[in-house]
């Protein structure tokens, strides 16, 4: 690792001031991606601003039709939270499937979505439920948040405070993990939220994306039969040692059908 300064502020204001003043400073959440990136010398921040001391990022709050999860909630906390298990079990289940137990003990929901790893699980949930990303400056429609490979709508000095998920009528997330890395080669999140079907895919493209043709079919009938003949284009899908674009296109169909089946139960 290249050298950097480490600062752990106690308030959001302090953290944002530090990040605003130095474009090469980086926020540090759980560090499950950032620290390995630094070890490979793929990034050279001047300062790491540790967000672990910010109480405001630790909330879980239930609204009448939504549930809001603080950005610094670790995967293990999301997976075990009684209120998330009661009101949004699909998210608790998704969190329980991330990485391994030791990674889940450190990694955070805010860090995961801010990183926009093409194979991360949470971005599929943000798109699949139509979540809202709450930052220190504004509310960002989940649809506009992921802008590409490892890139998001976040600006300098802007950090994710929380994610607000609407409560779906039904939802499920199914992934096909790479047998070695356990990252999602393809993950599909399906839901019916406020009467509308949503289908979001992770692992397959540069960042998470929705599948409008499947959503329209599921709007007509939320059943496996409605989507089983839909052909997924392999254009623009990722090619890497874990899967070819052709294989990923096939997996999207399979995971989507399994997810619809699980959600319909």
């Amino acid at each position: 690792m290249h050298a950097f300064e480490y600062i752990k502020p106690n308030t959001v204001w302090e953290a944002v001031d530090l990040l605003d003043a130095d474009e090469d400073a980086r926020p540090l959440a759980g560090g499950m991606t950032l620290l390995p990136t630094l070890k490979q010398r793929l990034a050279q921040p001047t300062q790491l601003v540790d967000l672990a001391g910010l109480e405001d990022l630790q909330i879980i709050s239930e609204g009448p039709s939504s549930l809001t999860i603080g950005a610094m909630k670790r995967h293990v906390q999301v997976a075990r939270s009684p209120s998330i298990n009661a009101f949004l079990p699909v998210i608790a289940h998704l969190a329980e499937g991330i990485g391994d137990p030791h990674v889940r003990n450190r990694g955070t929901i805010g860090g995961s979505i801010s990183n926009s790893d093409p194979a991360a699980d949470y971005p599929a949930a943000v798109l699949g439920l139509g979540a809202t990303v709450i930052t220190n400056r504004r509310e960002i429609d989940g649809q506009d948040f992921f802008t590409g490979l490892f890139s998001t709508a976040l600006e300098q000095g802007e950090i994710v405070m929380a994610i607000r998920f609407p409560l779906p009528e039904r939802a499920a997330y199914i992934k096909f993990p790479n047998p070695a890395s356990r990252y999602a080669a393809v993950g599909v999140f399906v839901a019916r939220v406020k009467g509308e079907a949503r289908v979001a895919v992770t692992g397959a493209g540069p960042c998470a994306f929705r599948l409008p043709q499947m959503e329209e079919a599921l709007d007509r009938s939320f059943a496996v039969e409605a989507i089983q003949d839909i052909e997924i284009s392999q254009e623009g899908l990722n090619a890497d040692p874990s899967a070819t674009p052709e294989y990923r296109a096939h997996l999207i169909g399979v995971m989507a059908r399994r997810a619809v089946e699980a959600a319909a139960r």
Binding site: Y6, K8, L28, G31, D50, H102, N105, R106
Partner: peptide, 25 residues
């Protein structure tokens, strides 16, 4: 690289990979 788990220790009662945590954290 955070994969093998040979470095696992307990931090405040939870298992973590000590190669992927800063002493400062």
């Amino acid at each position: 690289t955070t994969q093998c788990g040979a470095c696992v220790v307990h931090a405040d009662g939870r298992s973590i990979k000590s190669c992927t945590a800063l002493a400062a954290q």
